[in-house]
Amino acid sequence: MEERIMIAGFGGQGVMAIGQILTYAGMIEDKNVSWLPSYGPEMRGGTANCGVIISNEPVGSPVVVNSTSAIIMNKPSLDKFEKFVNKGGKLFVNSSLIEAKSERDDIDVYYIPANEIANELGNSRVANMVMLGAYLEATKAIGMKSIEEGFVKVFGEERAHLLPINKEALKKGGEFVREQKKFLETKSY
């Protein structure tokens, strides 16, 4: 098993955070993991991304170029990373902010209105967790218990009280994917 995940969006959408949670959770499950952020002379509202690798084998290059999955939170990131998803890979698009449809017909694309779902839950900041929930449901790469443990590791015990709403966001993202999965299963490449 080797998951190579590109997570990208605007600064402030929590793309680094869900990458770290996923990485921590992979480590908890005794996988080999790495998390590599983009860094640079970035500004608020600029694009941010991180590449996460979760593998049974030691991680070679930590640079995620050809990804098995991509979690895309905004349009510029879709334009940049859509083409690098491996054939047969999975693309998760935040359809609340991205009107465009993917041009790829050789990958599974999930459209998740992450901001709307997060707003319904009462906290717009959990949109990233909705996307993460969608990813976890579609790939089954990591168990939910490890993700919850990873959340506390990344955000610290003092913010553990935010876990319930984040769990809810993960669940909603998952539910949304289950619906779309039924449709995708009828599709063949």
Partner: peptide, 10 residues
């Protein structure tokens, strides 16, 4: 290099 400085690993 910048990569090893910035990346996270166990």
């Amino acid at each position: 290099d910048g990569m090893i400085g910035q990346m996270m690993e166990p």
